[in-house]
């Protein structure tokens, strides 16, 4: 992890990033619900990589919000790279924190899940989209919350977390305060 920036308090003008793993994008929607506060945020911090921006390789970030659980091999790889390049990493929303709905497939074997999705309920082409091209990443045996794979600095619960709390957390981090995350768990 030689390229890792130190995991200390982030600087005021550093880029902030968001990542979307195995989740429904609801947490990102909630982020958009910051509405005009996005502008206030933009004054303090540059928005680097995110599902909304175009990048080839995840650039270093001071604060990274990670939505979603670790569900496939791509999620695993992305998460490890993001962790290595982020000073502060936040589990963003219940799927990232607990696995949540994404992890409900853990009750079944991967083969059965795929079979149900791609064969039994297929309407156009029935068959697994695996192939050798690696376009569709392989599912991991089990979906995991992100802290089971990398070190997480803060946990932001909620499905999705509401905008106020996202704002409070990011602001606290930018101001170098210890964020208080008082909310019901789960």
């Amino acid at each position: 992890m030689s390229e890792a920036p130190s995991r200390e308090a982030p600087g005021r003008e550093a880029p902030m990033a968001t990542v979307w793993l195995g989740g429904c994008s609801g947490c990102h929607m909630s982020f958009m619900d910051l509405d005009e506060r996005l502008l206030a945020l933009a004054e303090r911090v540059e928005l680097g990589a995110s599902p909304l921006s175009d990048f080839k390789d995840f650039p270093p970030a001071d604060i990274t919000l990670v939505e979603g659980a670790v569900a496939n091999e791509d999620n695993l790889e992305v998460l490890r790279r993001v962790r290595a390049r982020s000073k502060v990493l936040i589990a963003f929303g219940d799927c990232a924190v607990t696995g949540n709905v994404t992890a409900m497939r853990n009750l079944f074997a991967v083969e059965d899940v795929l079979d149900r999705a791609y064969r039994q309920s297929a309407t156009v082409i029935a068959g697994l989209p695996l192939g050798g091209d690696g376009v569709v990443p392989r599912l991991l045996p089990r979906v995991r919350p992100i802290h089971e794979v990398v070190q997480v600095d803060h946990f932001l619960q909620g499905c999705p977390p509401d905008a106020d709390r996202i704002f409070d957390l990011v602001l606290a981090l930018l101001e170098g305060r210890t964020p208080e995350i008082a909310r019901r768990f789960g």
């Binding site: 607990t98 949540n100 709905v101 409900m104 619960q157 499905c159 008082a182 789960g186």
Partner: peptide, 25 residues
């Protein structure tokens, strides 16, 4: 899976987690 539970928000297990300061498992 609290997000999709009938008792979400009225659950003693959630209350316990909150009062004990649990933010992840």
């Amino acid at each position: 899976v609290c997000a999709v539970c009938v008792s979400n928000g009225h659950c003693e297990l959630q209350d316990l987690a909150t009062s004990l300061g649990i933010d992840h498992v």
